[in-house]
Computed example of a mutant assay.
Amino acid sequence: MKMSRQNAEHYIWGDQCDGWHLLKAQNLSIIHERMPAHTAEARHYHEESQQFFFLLEGTATIEIAGEEHELHQHEGIHVAPHIPHQMFNKSDSDIQFLVISEPTTRGDRFPA
């Protein structure tokens, strides 16, 4: 089945951020996320899951192990298990990105 934001399971997280489950399997998760201007997720890490963040629209800042990285449209970055990280939208516009997690992060998210 083709997947898009229009037919994917939707949820709201953080400060009015959106997520759409494009693929929700135990061994692989792909989520399309939207963060409004000047929002951030809570800093955390995963024991098992590795993740790849790929920016679709806007400019994002991601802090990984204390180092900030700015991502622009069509750029991505990998986060290994056990590494604390946090996504920010420091811009004045929405950002949209994909979060690809292997395996899923369900039950594998811990405050950092």
Rank of each mutant, 00 (worst) to 15 (best):
E9W: 04
H10R: 04
Y11Q: 09
I12R: 12
W13D: 00
W13E: 08
W13N: 05
G14V: 06
G14I: 15
Q16K: 15
W20D: 09
L22R: 03
Q26F: 07
N27C: 05
I30R: 14
I31M: 13
H32F: 12
E33D: 13
M35G: 05
P36R: 08
A37Q: 11
E41N: 12
E41S: 13
A42H: 03
A42S: 08
H44Y: 04
Y45K: 00
Y45A: 03
E47C: 02
E48N: 14
F54H: 10
L56I: 14
E57K: 13
T61V: 14
T61K: 06
A65M: 00
E67Q: 10
E67P: 00
E68F: 02
E68D: 11
E70G: 05
L71E: 08
Q73L: 04
H74D: 12
H74Y: 12
E75Q: 08
I77M: 10
I77Y: 04
I77C: 03
V79P: 11
V79H: 07
A80F: 02
A80C: 09
P81A: 12
I83M: 11
P84V: 04
Q86H: 07
N89F: 05
N89M: 09
K90D: 14
S91R: 05
D92Y: 12
I95L: 04
Q96K: 14
Q96P: 11
V99C: 09
I100W: 10
I100S: 09
E102D: 09
P103H: 05
T104Q: 02
R106D: 13
D108P: 01
R109Q: 02
F110A: 00
